[in-house]
Design a protein around this nucleic acid. Sequence first.
DNA 1: CGCAACATTGAGGGCCCTCAAGAGGTGTGG
DNA 2: CCACACCTCTTGAGGGCCCTCAATGTTGCG
Lengths: 273, 273
Amino acid sequence: MAAPPTGPMVIRMEPSFAAPPAFAAVPERAAALRPAQLGQALRRGAVPGDDSLWSALAGTPALSDAEVEALAGIAQVRHVAAGQGVFSRSHTASTLVGLRSGEVALGFRTADGTFRTERIVRGPAWLDLSSAWLDEAHAMDAQALGSATVVEWPREALQQRLAKHPGLAQRVIVGLAREVQALAVNTHELMHKDAPARLAQWLHQRCEPLAGAAGQAIVKLHERKRDVASQLAITPETLSRLMRSFSRQGVIEVSGYNVRVLDPVALGRLAQA
Amino acid sequence: MAAPPTGPMVIRMEPSFAAPPAFAAVPERAAALRPAQLGQALRRGAVPGDDSLWSALAGTPALSDAEVEALAGIAQVRHVAAGQGVFSRSHTASTLVGLRSGEVALGFRTADGTFRTERIVRGPAWLDLSSAWLDEAHAMDAQALGSATVVEWPREALQQRLAKHPGLAQRVIVGLAREVQALAVNTHELMHKDAPARLAQWLHQRCEPLAGAAGQAIVKLHERKRDVASQLAITPETLSRLMRSFSRQGVIEVSGYNVRVLDPVALGRLAQA
DNA sequence: CGCAACATTGAGGGCCCTCAAGAGGTGTGG
DNA sequence: CCACACCTCTTGAGGGCCCTCAATGTTGCG
C-alpha cells in the first residue's frame, strides 16, 4: 500500500504494522525514584570502554594511557534497571554523569507521578556534564527507558585530575561547548518555528539514506510517539495530525514506527519556516 | 494616579512618563555589520579590569597575579560603537568573546535587515564562550545597543595558557556550566509555560526591593518593550496586553519604563503555571 | 509642525490544546 | 481460547491563546 490514505475515514494500518519497541515493557507509572538506592550497586575500578564516552563526545584524538588511567581510577559504574531513576533534580549533583549504553529520558517528574520527557539520550553520551560544577541540584530528572549503564566521575576528584591532564579539561570544555550550542539551537527553534517546522526538522535530522531508492530516506522511531511529541513540545494528537498532513502532501509515508521520507528536499523546506 | 485603569477607554499615561532610554538613538535599521571592520581598532596589552569578566563570571576567588598576566598577554580589546555589529554568525569563531561594559543584543539578523533579539547582555558578561572551542561559526549575531567595550581571547593561545593554569580552565568550565543551566531553564520555560507565566517570571527575576514600601519592588526596563517581548518570544502587542492584565489584577503598576510590583507573591504565583 | 518610531488598543483569525470516543495491540486470568 | 484491563494511537469537535493587521495616541527630532 504505497499511497497514503486520503479520506477522513478510519485508517487501517497495514498488516506489517511494527510492534511497539521495548518501551512497552516500561509503563509510565514505573516505580518512583527511590534516592536511597542511588548509591547502591556501585563498583570501582578500570573498566574497558571507560574512555568511549570521552572519545565519542569530545573529539577524535584518543585519550592517552595516562588520561585513561586518571579517569578510570575515580569512575563509578552503575547499572540501572528499566524504568528506574538515574538521578533526580531534588538531589545535589556531585558527579559528572555519562551514559555508556542504553537509553535514558531527561525531563521532569511532575507532581502526579508522570514523567514529562524533554529529551531522550542514547549512549554513549553525557547525561549531566554541567550541574556538578555549580554545586547545584541536577537540572532535570533522568529515568532509564531500558536497562542502562551509567558512569559517574566525582567532581572533586576529577577536578584534581584535570589540573594534571589539561587534555581532559579540554574535553570537558568542548563537551560543554557542544551542549551550549545544541541548547541554543533548540531555544531558537522553540522561539521561532511552529509545530510543523519543528517536526520536519526533527525528521530531517534523523534521515538515514535508503538504499535502492535514490534520494529517499527512512526514519525509525525508537520511542513512543508521545515521547517524540514531548520532545517537540506538542501533544500526541497534534503529532498524529501533522504526520497525516505530511503524508497527504506526499512528503512522507508513515507505517507504524517507520517513517519513509519520499521527498527530503520538501521536508527540508517545511523545516525552514 | 495609583489605581490602574479599569475600562477599555483610551489610557493616558501620567505626566511623569519616563523618556525612552538611550536605545532610542540606535534605530533598528542601523548600518549592517561590515565584517571587514571587525579586526580594526584592536589593541593589545594588559588593561586594568581585564580580570573582572573572569571574576564576575566564574566565582568569587580572585585571579592570581600569574593568571591575570597570562590572560592579559593575549587579550584583545575592542570598542564598538552603538548599533555596530560585534560578531556575526556567518564568521568562524576563533576567540572567546566577553563584554566588559555596555549592552549588546544577541539574536539573529534576518534577511530583511531587521534584528530579532533573543537575549540582551549587560557587561561584564560573556558574549560567546562556546563557539570558538568547536571551530564553528558564532551561534548568533551580536549587535551593540550602546557604546560597548569587548574583550576577546584567541582560543588557540588561551588553550595553551589554560594548560599551565588549571584554575583558568576551571573558570571556563564553570562559565560554560552556568550557561548550560541557564539555557536549560530557558528551554524548559519555553516548552511548558505560557506567555503570562513567562512575563511574570521575567519580572519576578528582576525585582529590586523598594525601600519605603515593605514587600514591594520595582523593575526598571532598560530596553525597548519590543525587545522585552522579543526575549519572551511574544509580540509587542501581547506584551502590552499582558501588562494591562497584570495591572487590572493589581499585581503591578506600569508607568512608562518603570514597573512597580505591588504584590510580588502574586507575581510569583503567576510565574508558576 | 510634520515626520518617524514606539506603544497601545481593537478586530479577526489561525494554530494548537483539551476533551472525548473509538480502534487496535498486548498481557493476564479464568 | 476468550474476556478483560490497559496501553497507544488516531480522529473529530470545540475553544482558548496568541499572532496579524490596522488604527490611534504619545514622544522626540529635524
